[in-house]
């Protein structure tokens, strides 16, 4: 067999296998906003928790310093500032141009999900109020992984609403 054929044959290998090789779920992040009922000086505060898979963060930020395939808390802690800088670049909230909510990063913890450990980024978004509408823009990982999904949950009073953020749906409008 010529090498060309072998390369093709190798391609068949995983094609054939693909028929049964549904494997791990793809990349997800979980963004939860909780509306604060109280207002201060006409401003609205939203409390956020954003869970981002450590595996995804490792792919873009190389968190595993010693490259041994075992990501430790020490390694994650060492990169917390970089994680924060990276993530918040891809999230914004606001009431149109010039009226963005101020996102104030708070602590970072670890949150266990069924498919692994996530960095849990806590933040506050302080928005000028009262808004006509509030837009959430989300584009985390879309440029490097179009199959990433942001699972957005809004909690307000006893109510919960969810939306799925994807490259085809990068914005959610919260409307009075």
């Amino acid at each position: 067999m010529r090498p060309f054929d072998l390369a093709l044959l190798a391609a068949v290998a995983w094609l054939a296998a693909a028929s049964t090789a549904v494997a791990h779920s793809a990349s997800d992040a979980y963004l939860t906003l909780t509306a604060d009922a109280a207002r201060t000086a006409g401003k609205i505060t939203l409390h956020g928790q954003w869970d981002i898979a450590l595996r995804d963060l490792d792919f873009v930020l190389k968190l595993d310093d010693d490259g041994d395939g075992r990501l430790t808390w020490g390694e994650v802690r060492h990169h917390q500032a970089a994680i924060e800088r990276y993530a918040y670049r891809y999230l914004s909230l606001g009431d149109g141009p010039g009226n963005a909510c101020a996102i104030k990063p708070d602590r970072q913890l670890i949150d266990d999900h069924a498919d692994g450990a996530y960095a849990a980024l806590f933040f506050e978004a302080v928005c000028p109020g009262p808004p006509h509408k509030l837009m959430l823009h989300y584009s985390l990982f879309f440029a490097i992984d179009p199959s990433h999904r942001g699972i957005f949950v809004l909690q307000s009073g006893g109510n919960v609403a969810t939306a799925l953020l994807s490259p085809a749906n990068t914005a959610v409008e919260l409307k009075p």
Partner: peptide, 14 residues
């Protein structure tokens, strides 16, 4: 808007 739980997603929403 929050109390009424009205999110207008641009695509999929529940």
């Amino acid at each position: 808007l929050m109390r009424r739980c009205a999110i207008v997603g641009l695509a999929w929403l529940v």
